[in-house]
């Protein structure tokens, strides 16, 4: 069983899990879109799952695997319930902004004020253009634009 207990693999996998957890933490702290905040929370769960499976591999038992299955279950429940609340919040305020609910804050916390943003994106979207191929067929005036039946 000594070949199964590979400490370098455990350490590398734990590092990957730690990076995923930390990135998820940064995301949930700093983003303001509710859905991106939930994606960041799911990312933290992924980091935990990687760590659990790494420990399970190292010790050679099934506890980590089973716990990750329950993490998947709870994540599915959490996503269903949370998305319902996100939809309710959106239909009440018209925004997916967590700062739209800042009237729920503590009385001692100051109000967050949005600064003026540059009005339009400095990066306009560039859509792909197709090169024309072949000869444009002559338009038939009598042909109806839409079929009667599909």
């Amino acid at each position: 069983m000594n070949t199964m207990q590979s400490l370098p693999l455990l350490q590398n996998a734990l590092t990957v899990g730690a990076i995923l957890f930390s990135l998820g933490l940064v995301g949930i702290l700093t983003r303001r879109n509710l859905i991106v905040m939930f994606l960041a929370a799911e990312m933290m769960l992924q980091g935990i799952s990687v760590s659990l499976v790494a420990w399970s591999r190292y010790h050679g038992d099934w506890g980590g695997h089973v716990l990750v299955i329950f993490v998947l279950t709870v994540a599915a429940c959490e996503a269903a319930v949370a998305l319902v609340f996100v939809l309710q919040a959106f239909s009440r305020t018209g925004r997916l902004d967590s700062a739209a609910w800042q009237s729920l804050r503590e009385a001692t916390v100051g109000r967050m004020i949005d600064h003026e943003l540059p009005s339009i994106d400095t990066l306009p979207p560039r859509f792909p253009t197709l090169t024309p191929a072949g000869i444009l067929p002559p338009a038939d005036e009598n042909e109806p634009l839409q079929r009667q039946h599909v």
Partner: peptide
């Protein structure tokens, strides 16, 4: 369902 057209201003700043 919920995304407005274009980039919302709250997506372009962060806390």
């Amino acid at each position: 369902l919920a995304q407005p057209a274009g980039l919302a201003p709250y997506d372009r700043v962060s806390n």
